[in-house]
Design a protein around this nucleic acid. Structure first.
Lengths: 193, 193
DNA sequence: CAAGTTTTTGAATGAACAGTCAAGTAAAAG
DNA sequence: CTTTTACTTGACTGTTCATTCAAAAACTTG
């Protein structure tokens, strides 16, 4: 017995995430959000308590999306090295619109104070999961003799994860996609047996 | 025949750079700057036209300082691989106060819009110079048979530079120094012949 | 001491922004 | 048609911030 919501809260969240991803948290004004979602200020406040809450929800959504995409690339019947290539591609360029936006998670971890617990939790959740996926692929690569055993699987996973993070920074700073891609190819090549 | 400046503009710039480095551009208020420099607002405005100008000067100063430190580590009579280790150490932890601040240049390149020409120029000047230094050391390492020739010197330089950038992000996000250091060791180990 | 210029001090301006309030409107369900 | 709840609209609060103004004080050189 009440008037139903006229907008799709989930869709609005997706749109907000895109804005935060593109402009960053601080540079995004509430007006930016209402303009792109076409949802009135009051209604947005009604569903999400504050700009910060909206951002945290965006981060979680981003994490879920990214992990899902990565899992996808890590599955299938390709060889471990091919999977690593696919994962790198997915991490950097999930879709066409992603150019120059970098990684929402990395952007957030740099934009907020290091002591921000809520942000940190989200970031660590993401990196932890990513590294686990990498570890799995790398280990199987080592077992198949495709990837070097000069370093442990953990060392290699941390190393690759770091390189991917660096690449995301390069991407955001405007380095051409080709060049970024090439760097990660080098990184993976050096990990091969 | 005029009253002389009561503060050292250069010293004040150094202090401002530290503040920007620690807090980022947007999170730094003009009041933060006047408080730490102990220079009155009017006087600061007298020497530097605006907060942005002050930041750009800080970036340039940072670049000069960092490059100088790197050149230092790249010189001397150590072996190429040892030099790379030293360079990584210098890039990450120039001094004790640097923990958790990351790299001013990377922080800036992420904080500002990708289209900001003045910022981009400064960032590219920095990365270009750093990569040249890396290239030199890597090439000599290849000539001495210490570093792999599976990849070209340029590829390896870009790769290492990327890894260092990633490490600087990790550093700023609060990853323990030991862990960051270990990752770069892995990276360098993988580049050895 | 006097001239000239720069600092200091404190107030003021004007813009942007997150978040709130309140009055009116619209829709679903009984 | 009435109740209940949510949406709309627009104005408003209170804060923070970069930047500017203007008048008073201080210092160097002639």
């Amino acid at each position: 017995m009440s008037r139903p919501r006229e907008f799709d809260a989930d869709h609005a969240l997706h749109q907000c995430m895109e804005v935060f991803w593109t402009k960053g948290y601080h540079a995004t004004s509430y007006e930016d959000l209402t303009r792109t979602t076409q949802v009135k200020k009051q209604s947005l406040y009604g569903v999400f308590k504050s700009k910060r809450e909206l951002f945290l929800k965006s981060l979680a959504l981003y994490r879920e999306q990214s992990i899902e995409l990565l899992e996808e690339r890590a599955a299938g019947k390709k060889s471990p090295v091919e999977k690593l290539q696919a994962i790198c591609e997915a991490a950097l360029f999930p879709d066409e619109a992603a150019v120059k936006r970098g990684c929402l998670m990395i952007n957030a971890s740099l934009e907020f104070d290091s002591g921000d617990e809520e942000i940190n939790r989200e970031v660590m959740l993401m990196t932890g999961t990513v590294e686990k996926i990498l570890l799995r692929v790398i280990r199987s690569g080592q077992e198949q003799g495709e990837i070097t055993t000069r370093m442990t699987d953990r060392e290699l996973a941390a190393h690759l994860n770091n390189a991917i993070g660096g690449a995301k920074v390069l991407e955001k700073s405007g380095t051409p996609r080709e060049q970024v891609s090439h760097i990660l190819h080098t990184t993976i090549a050096l990990m091969q047996a």
